[in-house]
Design a protein around this nucleic acid. Structure first.
Lengths: 209, 209
DNA sequence: TCAGCTGTGTATCTTTTGATACCGTGTGGA
DNA sequence: TCCACACGGTATCAAAAGATACACAGCTGA
């Protein structure tokens, strides 16, 4: 079992000794459980998180639907929070923990100094921005070009790989939210997949064949 | 009539004298005409552009359709180029000039130094990333939630505002590309708008009422 | 144990969008 | 002048996705 300190040590992409000292000095390790809300739309971002373990689901809410932006996973940070913190803006997104999660959090006020002082941080930030942008383009592409059945299958496969399992635990309702569709449509598609022997359906779970 | 030097002077958001000197020393002003290709998918990005006047349309191409990412307008830079240059990656997008355009271009190799040396550049980069990301989210939202007619109207209104005119010069075909749809669909929708007295159609142009 | 909630299956209907095809009508250049 | 080509109108057909409604099963807490 890793301690928070072990996890911290894994952040090897910040090599500058001086920086690592600062990270330790100002950083604070905090734990969250599934469902905990990290940030809400409209709040100022006082702390910037780096995920040590677990995942944060970041999304925007419009009327009754939501737009999934990305998941912040181990070693990553939340670019929406980063930008909001950097510019002292309110958050425009929600961040919710989806599994037991440990975060390393820093006062937002440090960010702009780090940007100038530590090349590795600078690179890290650029990398995260680039990555999030590419992810969003990908989703975008998916919506524009691919039909929902295709996207459903993609989602399930990726989730299966990520969690290294053949059984994905998710409700049709939730799956619909992830893909920006509605429950009935997803149920219909999944049932067809089951008839095609591509998956097997259970209450709250889907087995990949 | 502004000279390129006048235009350069407008970049007041880079106040550091030392930085301005460097900008002048390494920067080069180049002109392009409508249709000129600035970057292509697969090319290395050797120069980073800041638009002084005009606009660059940045998009990705997949099979026969394209995804519009953004327009780089005056005082802006192209984040895709920036990221590609920073990481020495090949470009994954195309950039094409859509009107007579003047660019200030810099050798890509300078970017990471600037990031650390000049706070104003750092802020500028963060700002651009933030902005592009928000733009993409907006398009995303549009596609997920809004029907095409709504998006067509939005597009026309915004374009009308941008160019301070009631008559937008664009073909149905081109409009379809901008919105990721097809010509027939757009023609159908526009015709309906005309019947509803929302617009008036001309060959190659649309008047807003 | 029973009420109520969540999760799922399914039918019906409508709307939206896309695909294809065909036909005009300007327009600019040979 | 005439032809090729870009532009635009429209009809027809099909597919995709959403909305709504209803039924029923499993689970959970009072």
């Amino acid at each position: 079992m890793d301690t928070a300190n072990d996890l911290f040590k894994k952040l090897t992409f910040f090599p500058e000794p001086e920086f690592r000292e600062e990270l330790l000095k100002h950083g604070q390790v905090v734990s969250f459980n599934k469902g905990d809300v990290i940030v809400k739309d409209g709040q100022y971002v006082k702390f910037l998180p780096i995920v040590l373990k677990g995942a944060i689901r970041v999304f925007q809410q419009k009327e009754d639907r939501e737009i999934l932006l990305y998941y912040v996973k181990a070693e990553e940070t939340c670019t929406m929070s980063l930008a909001a913190a950097y510019f002292n803006n309110k958050s425009t997104s929600h961040g919710v923990v989806t599994e037991p999660t440990e975060l390393l959090i820093f006062p937002s006020s440090l960010i702009d100094q780090w940007q100038l002082k530590y090349p590795s941080w600078n690179k890290y930030v650029m990398h995260m921005f680039r990555r999030r942008y590419d992810e969003l383009i990908n989703s975008f592409e998916g919506i524009v070009f691919d039909h929902i059945p295709h996207r459903v299958l993609e989602y399930l496969k990726r989730k299966g790989l990520d969690e290294n399992t053949k059984t994905v635990h998710i409700s049709h309702e939730h799956l619909a939210r992830e893909l920006g569709s509605t429950r009935v449509v997803i149920s219909r598609i999944l049932k067809q997949f089951e008839r095609d022997k591509k998956i097997k359906l259970f209450r709250g779970a889907i087995e990949l064949l």
